[in-house]
Design a protein around this nucleic acid. Structure first.
Lengths: 260, 260
DNA sequence: GCTAAGTGCGTACAGCGTTCTCACCGTGCT
DNA sequence: AGCACGGTGAGAACGCTGTACGCACTTAGC
């Protein structure tokens, strides 16, 4: 929330509009990767993001610090600021790079295409356990995100839906997948945090759950503990997805038939 | 991820099981609020959480620091650690308290009940813009969360669904609401960050969007800028909800009829 | 070859969560 | 009635964070 200083103001800036004092920093993807003048840079945004992603995947997102990335690259922390003006910009680049881009051509079967889209998105978010959380916190607008948006909207195009409706369908799936994946990883991480194994977690939670059940005020929790078959995460995902797709076909019948 | 020290081990602890070196801290709601021995505490978990929530609502979640909360209470930072052993425990208590508890009796119309549930949940998350993000990152298990779970499951009970299916339906709605609300707030916050008004944001993004459209490689982005009617957030929410409920009724027909 | 933009990076600062410590308080046991 | 001991408030200090500033060095364009 603190306003970063002007790293280097464009030399020929117009007499600053008194309405807004500091001309806002342009979004990271508008800043040129390097100017034509100085020595050739030793690193690049992409290389830095690559290291940050590896770090986040291997040791958790909280291991991603400027100093640590720099150390991994064999340089000083301040060097990174030649490439990325703030840590928020680092995140933007890291997220967009982690999202990546995988093409998907519409097959004419919208339901199948949307299912593939949902599964692909989930896989991406699961490959990087910090990603769902990161992507949900900010609008990203990077090149991969934007190309991905084109690809995803194409899956529901040509069926008579307006652009608003198309966005609605795609976002419905996106939001559910991010929400569900976050819940998945939150559960997993909480278990891991308490000593790296499932037993320790149950050891910690067991007495608490027992205490709760003893009050008799949590009949459904009781049933969850006693009756639940606990479908696998994959099964739960597939069921949720089927519900979603049923709903989409019910509300937007144009999407239901085969062919275009 | 760092293991906090034992704040004060119970005096009569058994010879420590060599399997796991440090007996894990019990979950915060199992620790007694205070022992029977010493002077009466000047504060309480609830009071601390109250201050933290006010701070987060007013100045953003990043304003919630131990020192700041302490200052607001008129005390020293370390005082808080008598009530909450770590900041993660603070978050747990804060989230559960912010979730609150609002009763909801089943009416016999499951679709209407689930819609009410979804709207109520969304309102709660919107009242505290940091909450959706916070609740999605960890399993909470606090008293409000747990009572809420009982209340929500009751809405789909008595229709022949197993507990797993009941959870499935409730979680589907929860995950979508958290995902969608996070997207909502992320968008809003990003706009606010760049100078507190919408115009500054468009001023920053405008040239970038223009640059993208000029490439001709983003036809759908183009349509979004040109054709989109941009339904309000409330409209989008209602549409998404209708889709979800249609899907639920299609997959679990037992929920569709009136009465029990 | 000069100039100025651009680069690598050490130093330093304010602020973070948390550990250690200590003086003091108040209840329950003797 | 006295005192032991657990609970309490809180300051000092540690190792960490993001990043502002400054300086020496490199290189493209004139």
């Amino acid at each position: 929330m603190a306003e970063p200083h002007d790293v280097h103001r464009p030399s020929g800036d117009r007499p600053s509009d008194p309405g807004d004092l500091n001309d806002p920093q342009p979004i990271i993807w508008m800043r040129p990767e390097r100017g034509a003048r100085g020595p050739v840079p030793a690193y690049s945004r992409e290389r830095i993001a690559e290291v940050a992603i590896a770090l986040a995947d291997g040791e958790g997102i909280e291991a991603v610090t400027m100093r640590r990335i720099a150390k991994e690259l064999g340089t000083g922390a301040m060097t990174l600021y030649r490439y990325l003006p703030t840590k928020e910009d680092l995140y933007a680049v890291v997220i967009d790079q982690a999202l990546g881009y995988e093409p998907q051509e519409p097959t004419g079967d919208v339901r199948a295409d949307l299912a593939t889209f949902a599964r692909r998105y989930r896989e991406t978010l699961r490959r990087h356990p910090w990603l769902a959380h990161a992507v949900a916190s900010r609008p990203v607008m990077g090149p991969n995100m934007l190309r991905g948006n084109e690809r995803d909207l194409a899956l529901v195009d040509g069926r008579g839906l307006g652009i608003d409706e198309m966005m609605q369908v795609v976002n419905l799936i996106r939001h559910w997948v991010t929400g569900a994946t976050q819940a998945e990883t939150a559960e997993r991480e909480a278990a891991l945090r308490s000593g790296m194994d499932r037993r320790t977690w149950q050891q910690r939670m067991g007495p608490y759950i027992g205490e709760l059940l003893a009050t008799g005020r949590f009949p459904y929790l009781d049933r969850m503990v006693r009756e639940a078959r606990y479908p696998s995460r994959d099964e739960r995902f597939e069921t949720g997805l089927a519900v979603l797709l049923d709903g989409i076909e019910a509300r937007f019948p144009a999407l239901a038939g085969r062919r275009g």
